[in-house]
């Protein structure tokens, strides 16, 4: 089933500059694929997405330089405001402004934590939806 979540902290303008920092970046000249490796951090506006490895996929010709999406692998963490989501991998479609996280997704919003198989975040209007077996984990101990 699907659970809708409000990501207030994530509503942002997706045409803001995207900065991708990493230890190393390898660019294959012939097909233009760019692979960032080594604690990669993508930041745009208030959103930080960190992963072990990120590959940039181009829209159309590589030399046109339009990045369509960033594929993050090897453990992904997305932080925005006090919301945080972890998963095995994620795809951030820059033009559409959507982040799709898959594989043991764990979403923590303040005290509550939700886990599921898939989390789709819409950055344009700051909403998200958890799909697959959604389990809620309540913070039971006193803070």
């Amino acid at each position: 089933q699907e659970t809708a979540i409000d990501f207030g902290g994530l509503r942002q303008d997706t045409t803001q500059p995207v900065e991708v920092a990493s230890d190393a970046l390898e660019v294959n000249q012939s097909d233009g694929t760019a692979t960032f490796s080594g604690n990669v951090v993508v930041s745009q506006g208030a959103m930080r997405l960190s992963a072990g490895r990120i590959t940039a996929i181009y829209a159309g010709e590589a030399s046109a330089g339009r990045i369509r999406e960033l594929r993050a692998e090897e453990g992904v963490t997305l932080v925005a405001g006090e919301d945080a989501a972890e998963a095995q991998s994620a795809v951030y479609d820059i033009d559409e402004g959507s982040v799709v996280m898959t594989g043991d997704v764990l979403l923590t919003q303040g005290p509550t934590a939700l886990s599921s198989e898939r989390l789709v975040i819409d950055l344009v209007n700051g909403t998200g939806s958890l799909e697959g077996r959604v389990r809620t984990i309540f913070e039971t101990g006193e803070r």
Partner: peptide, 21 residues
């Protein structure tokens, strides 16, 4: 099949999505 450019020692790419839109 071609040249490979490898940037190391800490790299930063600045990308402007709306450029060329």
């Amino acid at each position: 099949d071609g040249f490979v450019l490898r940037f190391t020692g800490g790299t930063k790419l600045l990308y402007y999505p709306d450029a060329g839109k």
